[in-house]
C-alpha cells in the first residue's frame, strides 16, 4: 500500500520490538527536517508568512522570538498538532527524511510516533508512573509485560528519572514534583522511540534546579535525536542549542549557528531582541 511505503520512508529504522534490541540500547539517529515555503493561516490571520529552513539530524535547534511570533505554531507543524485548531490552513512542504508529512496519505498517528513532543506545562496523565510511560507503547498494541517493563525502564533511565521513581512505579504521576513530572513526560515521549523530539518551552513552568536537569538531559539526548526546542529564555538557547532561529511576527528573521546568532547576528532586529531591547 502507498500509505505503508510513505510511513517506512519516514522511519529511520525498522522498529521490531524484540527484547534483544532493547537490551542493546538500540541506538537510533535523528531525522532531517526540510521546510519549504511554509505558510499558515488561522481563518484570515496569517500566522506563518513563508518560511524555508533545514534542520540537521542530531542537532539541537532553538526557536526564539517574542510571544506571538509564530514559533510555537511553527514547531507544532512538525507533528501536525495544529490539525486540531479551528480554522487552521497550511501551504508549503515539510519533509522528514524526504517524505512530505502533509501529504494526504500520511498516517498522522504513525508520524507522531516518529516525532515526539514535550509541552510547556508538565501534563502527565492521571495514571501511575508506569502507565504514563507505557501509554504510547500500549496504544501500539504492545501487551507483553516483559517488553513493557524493559521499555519503561529504558525510557525512565534516558530521562534520568529511573533512580528517583524505580520503587514507586505504581504511584500516581501527579504525586511527583513539577520537574519530575516534566522528565516523566520526556520519558513517556522517548518510550515510543521517536527520531525527532519537539519541545515547546519545556522548562518555562519549572524552578532553576529542575531546569538545569532538563537542559543536561537535552544535551545527552541529541546524540540519538534531532531536537527542536522553543524557548523564551535566551540564555537557555545559547547554552543548549547548536542552531538558533529567530522569529518575528510570522517570519524567520535569522537562522544560523547559535554562536553566530548570539555573538555576531546579521540583522539588527535579531540583535535588538537578544540584547533585550524588545521582546
Amino acid at each position: 500500500m502507498a500509505k505503508e511505503t510513505a510511513i517506512t520512508m519516514i522511519k529511520i529504522k525498522e522498529k521490531k520490538i524484540d527484547s534483544k534490541k532493547v537490551e542493546d540500547g538500540a541506538s537510533k539517529d535523528g531525522a532531517k527536517i526540510a521546510i519549504k515555503d511554509v505558510k499558515v493561516w488561522y481563518d484570515d490571520f496569517m500566522a506563518i508568512k513563508g518560511i524555508d529552513m533545514t534542520i540537521k539530524p542530531n542537532t539541537v535547534t532553538a526557536f526564539i522570538g517574542p510571544s506571538g511570533c509564530g514559533k510555537s505554531t511553527f514547531l507544532r507543524l512538525f507533528n501536525r498538532m495544529n490539525d486540531y485548531v479551528e480554522g487552521f490552513k497550511m501551504e508549503g512542504k515539510i519533509k522528514l527524511n524526504g517524505t512530505n508529512i502533509y501529504k494526504d496519505k500520511i498516517n498522522v498517528e504513525e508520524l507522531r510516533k516518529e516525532v515526539g513532543m514535550v509541552f510547556q506545562k508538565p501534563n502527565p496523565f492521571p495514571k501511575s508512573i508506569f502507565e504514563n510511560v507505557a501509554y504510547g507503547l500500549k496504544i501500539q498494541g504492545i501487551k507483553d509485560k516483559k517488553i513493557l517493563n524493559e521499555r519503561v525502564e529504558k525510557a525512565l533511565r534516558q530521562a534520568d528519572l529511573w533512580t528517583e521513581v524505580k520503587d514507586d512505579l505504581k504511584k500516581s504521576a501527579l504525586a511527583l514534583s513539577g520537574g519530575q513530572q516534566q522528565r516523566l513526560c520526556i520519558a513517556r515521549t522517548l518510550a515510543v522511540e521517536p527520531s525527532i523530539l519537539l519541545m515547546d518551552e519545556p522548562t518555562s513552568a519549572l524552578d532553576p534546579i529542575s531546569t538545569a536537569k532538563i537542559e543536561d538531559l537535552i544535551f545527552e539526548l541529541k546524540e540519538k535525536y534531532t531536537i527542536v526546542i522553543v524557548t523564551h529564555n535566551m540564555q537557555q538557547a545559547s547554552r543548549i542549542s547548536d542552531y538558533t532561529a529567530f522569529f518575528y511576527i510570522g517570519e524567520l528573521i535569522e537562522f544560523d549557528k547559535t554562536k553566530t546568532i548570539f555573538t555576531n547576528p546579521e540583522k539588527q532586529q535579531t540583535e535588538n531582541y537578544i540584547t533585550g531591547r524588545f521582546g
Partner: peptide, 22 residues
Amino acid sequence: PHSLKEASFALGASKWQTIKNV
C-alpha cells in the same frame, strides 16, 4: 484538560484511543 488530550495525540494515539484511555 486539553493538555491531556494533546499529550495523548502527541504520543501517536488515534482519536478513539485518546477518548477511551484519557
